[in-house]
Design a protein around this nucleic acid. Structure first.
Length: 462
RNA sequence: GCCCCCAUCGUCUAGUGGCCUAGGACACCACCCUUUCAAGGUGGCGGCACGGGUUCGAAUCCCGUUGGGGGUGCCA
């Protein structure tokens, strides 16, 4: 690798940050870090994006969330494609003057008509020798070589050969005078001193054209690397329409950045037998050469498993802090902290937290009728509840004591603790499932717990 | 149609000619633990797409087939 490699990440703003883009960014970031290089953020802005600066801010925020922070010395940007418009046109002019490109005044309709008539696919260089000059409505086309092959040396795929005869004379500048993606892209990369282009595989077919442009413009092509795309369960490229692809959405649903980053890095690459690895390790171990070649399924279930694991690794303090955005403002923070150790192993996402312990904060528990019917429709439910209330009135109100006391009560019913705790649980929480009962009671407090139990008893006709 | 890429358990992957009776992770199943639900522990199920070569030996190399995907814009 060159001394100070420069990697570029070139998203086009769309109002959300694609998880596939996040992975590509991470790959570039790891490389830049381990080689002391630079991560260049180039915004490939369009007219629409130019009018929406918040889209660019969104990209920067999303990158920051996954640890790629704009104030890091190895981060450069954002740079905007639109700022290089003059350079794009200057390059086009130069290509024309040097005979590497030519003007064509055929309309798309004329082209398809002639292609059909001559039974060829696409544009067959019909204006190559017409000596046309620039004119309104005319496009500038690149004169691709007729013979030989363009060989793209790709770090992950090896040498990929494209027969030049199959490369048509592609458009460089549109009829309205604006440069096309391939031209702008190459000119920008050159202007920004990019040495490594690491991007998704969908760009591979564009690469021979871009490589030809690099050479025509007098530069050595960069190091290319095309990483596999992310696909859905139907093995199709992840699409915004039908797949959950927005990084912001995962963030807002309570996925941890560390979990997301770790999971994303296992798509197309593996850190070894232990997949749960901190970024500090991943950053050192990642190798483009080791990237897998086949598309990878973005598996929400595995992401969820990673997230749960990362949540369980948090200290209780960290967990409480992390949950903050999802907690109703009126909830007592001390009370949440007290029960937090017991919600921790039950979380898939941080957003799940409130739903698990809401009964500790509500004035009245929300009684799930199905749970009530299931648990209370036994003849021993009412007497056991009555006995429990009586025994609890004289109890120390610690989780241990609450458990021992209930065990004393249930002895006369010949019940196991699993059964005996059910009516109490439903009386207090309204549900059959939830955090450990006695710890919950301790946190809820004597008065409120007993009150709820009495309400339940009354409903049972006691 | 044409061009390009790809192919190991359901999924993500390890594997670079003998360490492979193919390893790990997620999911799934069973059991253990247990205060419900989780978490945790143990075990299990499950794969080299197919056909030809090359080689003493192939998941690994070559060819073909089949199957997926991507690209084929005056989109990016």
């Amino acid at each position: 690798m060159t001394d100070r490699p420069r990697f570029r990440f070139a998203p086009s703003p769309t109002g959300f940050f694609h998880v596939g883009g996040a992975r590509t960014a991470l790959f570039n970031w790891a490389l830049a870090r381990q080689h002391g290089g630079t991560f260049v953020l180039r915004i490939e802005d369009t007219d629409e994006a130019r009018n929406r600066p918040e889209w660019t801010d969104g990209i920067i925020d999303a990158l920051a969330w996954i640890g790629i922070t704009a104030d890091d010395p190895q981060f450069e940007g954002p740079l905007f494609q639109s700022d290089y418009a003059d350079a794009h046109l200057a390059a086009a002019r130069r290509l024309f003057e040097e005979g590497r490109a030519y003007y064509c005044d055929m309309t798309p309709d004329e082209i398809s008509a002639r292609a059909e008539a001559e039974d060829v696919t696409g544009y067959a260089g019909w204006s190559r020798d017409r000596g046309l000059g620039p004119a309104p409505g005319s496009v500038l086309r690149f004169r691709t070589p007729d013979e030989g092959a363009t060989i793209v040396r790709d770090v992950v795929r090896g040498a990929v050969e494209f027969d030049n005869a199959t490369l048509e004379d592609f458009v460089l500048v549109r009829g309205n005078g604006t440069p096309v993606f391939n031209l702008a892209n190459v000119v920008d990369d050159q202007a920004m001193g990019i040495t490594h282009v690491v991007r998704a595989e969908e760009h591979l077919p564009n690469t021979p054209k871009q490589q030809l442009l690099w050479e025509a413009l007098g530069h050595e092509p960069p190091v290319w690397a095309h990483v596999p795309v992310l696909v859905n369960e139907q093995r199709k490229k992840l699409s915004k329409r039908r797949d959950k692809v927005s990084l912001e959405q995962f963030r807002d649903e309570g996925y941890l950045a560390d979990a997301m980053v770790n999971y994303l890095m296992t798509l197309g690459w593996s850190p070894g037998d232990d997949e749960i690895q901190p970024w500090s390790m991943v950053e050192r171990a990642f190798r483009l050469e080791d990237v897998h070649h086949a598309p990878a399924f973005f598996d929400l279930k595995k992401l969820a498993a990673f997230n749960g694991e990362y949540i369980r690794k948090l200290s209780v303090d960290e967990l409480v802090t992390a949950c903050e955005p999802w907690l109703p403002t009126e909830w007592d923070r001390g009370r949440f902290a007290a029960i937090a150790p017991h919600v921790q192993p039950r979380l898939v996402t941080l957003a799940d937290a409130p739903g698990i312990v809401d009964f500790l904060f509500l004035d009245e528990p929300e009684i799930d009728e199905a749970s009530w019917d299931k648990v209370m429709n036994v003849d021993w439910a009412r007497p056991l509840l009555a006995d429990a209330i009586a025994a609890y009135e004289a109890c120390d109100w610690t989780a241990d004591d609450l458990k021992t006391t209930l065990e004393g009560v249930m002895a006369s019913y010949e019940l196991k603790l699993g059964k005996a705790q059910a009516p109490v649980r439903v009386a207090v929480s309204g549900r059959t499932v939830g955090p450990p009962l006695f710890e919950s009671l301790e946190v809820l407090g004597r008065d409120e717990s007993l009150r709820r139990m009495r309400v339940a008893l009354a409903r049972l006709g006691g």
